[in-house]
Write a protein that binds this DNA or RNA. Structure first.
Length: 111
DNA sequence: CGACTGACGGGGT
DNA sequence: GACCCCGCCAGTC
């Protein structure tokens, strides 16, 4: 089932899976890592399919503003914030506190 | 086949 | 600093 596009989603999933505990990243960063530069939206789309992938911590993926834009897509909106706070990432007003500090860039995972 | 939408980002006004 | 518009690509109506 599914189309060949599944491979594209899989690529996004793999990157998201690489996000360390207590870290967050942005859609644009993942898109850039995949070469989709402006395809940040596609990353969010892929995350929508991540519902079938428990190993994909979509809650660690926020927009470049550090805002939990996709919280509404979880089982319940508060789940995303709860999961992040459980990992030590404080969220206030649907926004990650010290986002720049917790930000994890996939292109820097080589470090 | 055509048009709109969408978990975004960047640039311009 | 806030607001608006465009682009990108894929999926759905």
């Amino acid at each position: 089932m599914k189309s060949k596009s599944e491979n594209y989603f899989d690529s996004v999933f793999q990157v998201v899976k690489l996000i360390p505990f207590g870290r967050v990243t942005s859609y644009g960063a993942i898109a850039n890592y995949l070469g989709l530069k402006s395809g940040a939206r596609m990353v969010g789309y892929a995350m929508n399919a991540s519902h079938n992938q428990e190993d994909v911590p979509a809650h660690r993926v926020v927009n470049r503003n550090g805002v939990l834009t996709g919280k509404h897509h979880f089982a319940y909106p508060e789940q995303m914030q709860e999961l992040l706070e459980k990992e030590g990432v404080l969220v206030e007003k649907d926004q990650v506190v010290d986002f720049d500090r917790f930000f994890w860039d996939p292109t820097k995972n080589l470090l």
